[in-house]
Design a protein around this nucleic acid. Structure first.
Lengths: 194, 194
DNA sequence: GTTTTTGAACTGACCAGTCAGTCTTAAAAG
DNA sequence: CTTTTAAGACTGACTGGTCAGTTCAAAAAC
């Protein structure tokens, strides 16, 4: 990667970071492109040099963020027996949310919306992340570690949602508490699934 | 109540209903006052005759919606032994979400935002609803039905968040499934708390 | 010399909030 | 009962501001 590409990547990264923070706090519609440019310390023209539109920027942001999450999920369960895999997923999700708390907050706020132009993109990405969880749950069911009558799809999305809401709730309303507490109570909560 | 008051109440009710649906789908910022007026079949001026501002309308909406929820919570646990009270709360929450699904969706999307003008109002109302749950959980801890080391506040907000996210997820992504399924899996999930 | 960024000006659509005027209803006056 | 009065409820065109997106010449980085 040459210097030019690097510089551009850096600019895009800064724009992602600025956008994710602002949109997490205020929502997509309430966040202006001028705000994003200002926080990223970039000229407004640069935003439009790098992204086709505000919506396109947001969609790429979603793709990027959920892509990372899905990777983390896959890495976390790799080679693990079903017995340990669900706990590993929970831990990976929390780790991710701790690192990218704004993105998590944004996901929580935008994931269950309907009638937004980028909604289809989000549904697809959600499918991707939850699909990864579902594979693990299915392996658990097949191996007999999880009850045979468990609805895999439903369990996967419940796991995903519960982790998201509990972690974000804690980050927003009790930010001083250590993440370990969240992990403990969350693992407690889902123990009957894991 | 005379005809005037009745008419006005009716208008306000229609505005609430229109606003809650639109804001659930699109979010507060993306919903215009013209949209709300159009769906409620009143003129835009009527919105401002009945509410001081778009934000004031939203705040009253939140107060009204969460007020109902809190009432339901109180009614659900009245006279129940701690052993059964948590399950009753979960059931009441689900019942509420089924009846006011748009409001629930709206809550899920707006509850963990920061830096919005109505955020303080929402935090207060949240406190009210979760406080009701917390009382029940505390009674359970005191009576020995729940573990003594349980953090009451945290357990209460986790319960609230989990119910909300699981139910709304189901309503949005699997609307055809009967609510009884949600109840079963949710009660399964929180059995170690209840 | 090519790519990327800058910054400032501009456009046009959109939107919260206003207001002068109209319709409705209760109730007072005849 | 019928008419008048007046407050209450509603209307929709209008205003002033905001914001996504465009444009472009010049500069900076490579």
């Amino acid at each position: 990667m040459d210097g030019r590409t690097r510089r551009r990547e850096d600019t895009r990264q800064r724009l992602f970071e600025a956008a994710v923070e602002l949109i997490a706090e205020q929502g997509f519609s309430a966040t202006t492109v001028d705000d994003i440019a200002l926080r990223a310390k970039v000229a407004k023209g640069t935003v439009y040099y790098n992204f086709a539109s505000k919506t396109a920027l947001f969609e790429e942001l979603l793709r990027h963020g959920i892509g990372l999450l899905t990777e983390d999920f896959r890495a976390a369960v790799k080679g693990l027996p079903p017995r340990d895999a669900v706990a590993a997923l929970v831990r990976a999700q929390l780790e991710y949310i701790r690192r990218y708390r704004s993105f998590a907050q944004l996901l929580l706020s935008e994931m269950w919306r309907t009638n937004r132009e980028w909604q289809q993109t989000l549904v697809l990405l959600r499918e991707e992340a939850i699909g990864t969880i579902a594979e693990t749950v299915r392996a658990g069911v097949d191996s007999g570690d999880l009850p045979a009558d468990l609805d895999v799809r439903v369990a996967a999305s419940a796991l995903f949602g519960v982790g998201l809401v509990v972690a974000v709730d804690w980050l927003v309303f009790q930010p001083d508490r250590p993440i370990e507490d969240v992990e403990r109570s969350l693992l407690g909560l889902v123990r009957r699934v894991g």
